[in-house]
Amino acid sequence: MTDCVFCEIVAGESPAVRVYEDERTLAFMDIFPGTDGHLLVIPRLHSRDLLEIGAEDLTAVTLAAQRIARVVVEELGADGVNLLNCCGAEAWQSVYHFHLHVVPRYADQSKDALVPPWRPGISGDRALLEELGGRLASALG
Score class of each variant (00 low, 15 high):
residue 16 A to P: 07
residue 114 L to Y: 08
residue 68 I to T: 01
residue 54 G to H: 01
residue 16 A to T: 05
residue 116 P to N: 05
residue 73 V to S: 07
residue 25 T to P: 03
residue 56 E to I: 06
residue 139 A to Y: 06
residue 108 D to P: 12
residue 26 L to E: 10
residue 98 F to T: 09
residue 95 V to G: 04
residue 52 E to M: 02
residue 56 E to M: 07
residue 76 L to Q: 08
residue 94 S to E: 15
residue 139 A to T: 03
residue 108 D to T: 12
residue 92 W to M: 14
residue 30 D to L: 13
residue 130 E to S: 07
residue 86 C to E: 14
residue 28 F to Y: 12
residue 68 I to W: 01
residue 73 V to H: 07
residue 52 E to P: 00
residue 133 G to F: 05
residue 94 S to F: 06
residue 108 D to I: 10
residue 97 H to W: 01
residue 74 E to Y: 05
residue 14 S to Q: 14
residue 116 P to Q: 06
residue 51 L to R: 13
residue 31 I to Y: 09
residue 42 I to P: 07
residue 106 Y to I: 11
residue 49 D to S: 15
residue 91 A to H: 04
residue 75 E to Y: 07
residue 37 G to W: 09
residue 129 L to Y: 12
residue 65 A to I: 04
residue 96 Y to K: 04
residue 77 G to P: 10
residue 16 A to G: 10
residue 52 E to A: 15
residue 117 P to Q: 12
residue 105 R to N: 03
residue 23 E to W: 02
residue 126 R to K: 13
residue 112 D to K: 08
residue 58 L to T: 00
residue 98 F to L: 15
residue 101 H to N: 08
residue 73 V to D: 05
residue 20 Y to V: 13
residue 135 R to Y: 05
residue 92 W to F: 15
residue 126 R to I: 08
residue 55 A to V: 10
residue 115 V to W: 05
residue 40 L to Q: 02
residue 89 A to C: 00
residue 102 V to Y: 07
residue 33 P to L: 06
residue 106 Y to R: 08
residue 69 A to Q: 02
residue 20 Y to L: 15
residue 74 E to N: 13
residue 96 Y to A: 10
residue 60 A to W: 00
residue 115 V to H: 10
residue 34 G to D: 09
residue 46 H to A: 04
residue 134 G to Q: 02
residue 26 L to N: 10
residue 107 A to C: 04
residue 72 V to H: 01
residue 27 A to E: 03
residue 81 V to T: 09
residue 13 E to V: 00
residue 54 G to R: 01
residue 133 G to E: 02
residue 50 L to K: 01
residue 122 I to Q: 09
residue 133 G to S: 11
residue 114 L to D: 05
